[in-house]
Amino acid sequence: MLIRQVIKSFYILMPLAILMAFLWAPSAEILGDFSRIIYFHVPLAWVSVLAFLVSGVLSAAYLFDKKQRYPWLDEKAFNSASIGMAFALLAVITGSLWAKLTWGSFWNWDPRETSIVVILLIYIAYFSLRSALAGNDRRGVIGSSYLILAMMTLPFFVFLAPRIYDSLHPETIINADRTPHLDDRMRMTLLISIFAFTSLYAYILHLMNRALAVAKRLEEEYHAAD
């Protein structure tokens, strides 16, 4: 299966990405070795967006899969959203370290920072909703609907609002994250690192989903016993 290939590739890609990031890629002219944080920050941010997208898509699939041919899609969406949350937090931490080094302060409400905070708030709200629905048989449907709503409104916040509002927030379009001055070795390293982190995400999601299946099986055995 494809997932196994992806997981296996993690064992090669991740060490490779780390070695390339620290040893092979040249340091940037102005920032020096600090710039190497890009090989971790960008992939983390990318994976968090990917994980949130996957959770939204799984939720939509859950709502349309009335006959439950694919089991526990809502819980798998929840797993993906929690991974996305963890990666987004790491992206915020690496990002603010980088901001301290380049702009001189950890936090300065750059549009990208604003948007990640809103994304975090949205998913914190989702986790509160899930916990409010514990034991309710509508949990899956309502949680999934919220994830879909969240996924649909994200583009408004991340892309549309700053663009319509370009007079206020011109930096979004020419963001510091998107500096085009990368040489080929840097670009290569970044690409490998993105693949490595994506395979890490697939690995964790796969593990969580297997753990979920085991927990469900145990629950059934327990109920069958009484």
Partner: peptide
């Protein structure tokens, strides 16, 4: 409020 605030922040 917790659900609405982030979605309506834009």
């Amino acid at each position: 409020s917790i659900l609405s605030f982030p979605l309506l922040l834009p």
